[in-house]
Simulated scan of single mutants.
Amino acid sequence: MKNYIVLDLEWNQNAGGKEEAVDHFPFEIIEIGAVRLNDAMEETGEYRRLIKPRVYTELHEKILEVTHMDQQTLMEEGICFEEAVEEFILWCGADPVFCTWGSMDLTELQRNIAYYKLSNPFKKPLLYYDIQKLYSLLEGDGKDRVSLDVAVFESGVMEERPFHRAMDDAHYTGRIMSKMDFKRVEAYWSTDYYCLPSNKEEEVYLVFPGYSKYISRPFESKQAAIEDKTVTDLICCKCNRMLRKKIRWFSVNQKFYTALGCCPVHGNVKGKIRLRRNDEGMVYVVKTMKLIGENEISEIYEKKDETKKKRVEKTKVRKQNKKRGVFPPS
């Protein structure tokens, strides 16, 4: 029997703005709300705790406006974060399957755990269901995301309860899950990137219908990441075959890299590398490989040609500037 834990958090931020915020701690959790669902997507339990802020003790005006939270109640009824997390993890029980609306909640929960120097209770890799993404796959184009209140209205599950409080938003997310055709999308797990693989052996390779995903360990630099063979290997997401590249990895903006390979059994495979930085400033790679049709192949060739033209133009400008004695600032 599944143990779905639908989680929602409310958090505060520095009232004076980002410039005065604590490094690597942009949001301080002030409320945890969750509901438990069974296999039939029925609620079988709920959890709610207010948490007394100790870093950003003054509620930001936007938080006050959205949550309508009362600062005095928060300070009087809130418990310390350490106690709330321990209590929440115990309440979750064995083998919880976490579900959230969007991709931020589990990351910020772990970031708060790290700030208070607590042991991270979650498995690596931390897989969860992003219900906002799944809703888009079922009801939209799979790319655009709608807000929770819009999805609630479209799903016909509106109740006489507000939005933007942790328990209420967790409840509404659970209600949406009960209405959607969950079986159709349950293969599409999301991965939280806060705790990355520590070494090559822990690197993650996940297979989904039509595509696969690789998550690397952190590297010291972009150059080190791109020079790693595992990062640049192109593999068929159906048969795991190493592919010959029809188009080698190229980049338009140094953040995203694209390649094209061909599997003799399953056809053309597009590779996409995204370079990201963790809180320590190190670079890690999220690489996806998916089967594509002829239309997308043409787009890749066009992007490749566009990149080549830009590179030629830059070289031309650089040579002209050199002749004039004009050099870029160091």
Score class of each variant (00 low, 15 high):
residue 178 S to A: 15
residue 40 A to C: 06
residue 234 L to S: 08
residue 18 K to W: 05
residue 173 T to V: 02
residue 182 F to Y: 01
residue 317 V to E: 10
residue 323 K to I: 07
residue 154 E to F: 06
residue 79 I to Q: 10
residue 196 L to P: 04
residue 97 V to Q: 13
residue 24 H to N: 15
residue 67 T to H: 09
residue 253 N to F: 08
residue 310 K to G: 01
residue 272 K to L: 11
residue 110 Q to G: 02
residue 107 T to I: 11
residue 320 Q to S: 13
residue 180 M to C: 06
residue 12 N to Q: 10
residue 107 T to K: 14
residue 270 K to A: 02
residue 179 K to S: 00
residue 179 K to R: 13
residue 260 L to F: 10
residue 153 F to K: 15
residue 302 E to W: 08
residue 1 M to L: 11
residue 73 T to Q: 15
residue 134 L to W: 01
residue 12 N to K: 05
residue 65 E to S: 15
residue 316 K to R: 14
residue 148 L to G: 03
residue 126 L to A: 10
residue 297 I to R: 14
residue 274 R to V: 01
residue 199 N to D: 15
residue 179 K to F: 03
residue 120 N to S: 13
residue 113 I to T: 07
residue 181 D to Q: 11
residue 319 K to N: 11
residue 46 E to D: 07
residue 254 Q to C: 10
residue 7 L to N: 00
residue 63 I to T: 14
residue 63 I to Y: 08
residue 8 D to T: 06
residue 240 N to R: 14
residue 25 F to A: 08
residue 278 N to G: 06
residue 247 I to H: 05
residue 54 R to Y: 03
residue 287 K to F: 03
residue 12 N to A: 10
residue 86 E to V: 06
residue 198 S to M: 08
residue 71 Q to M: 11
residue 109 L to F: 08
residue 117 K to H: 12
residue 54 R to D: 09
residue 299 E to I: 12
residue 287 K to C: 02
residue 72 Q to N: 13
residue 258 T to A: 07
residue 202 E to V: 05
residue 226 I to N: 00
residue 287 K to G: 05
residue 142 G to W: 05
residue 163 F to N: 05
residue 55 V to Y: 04
residue 99 C to E: 00
residue 327 F to T: 11
residue 83 E to F: 04
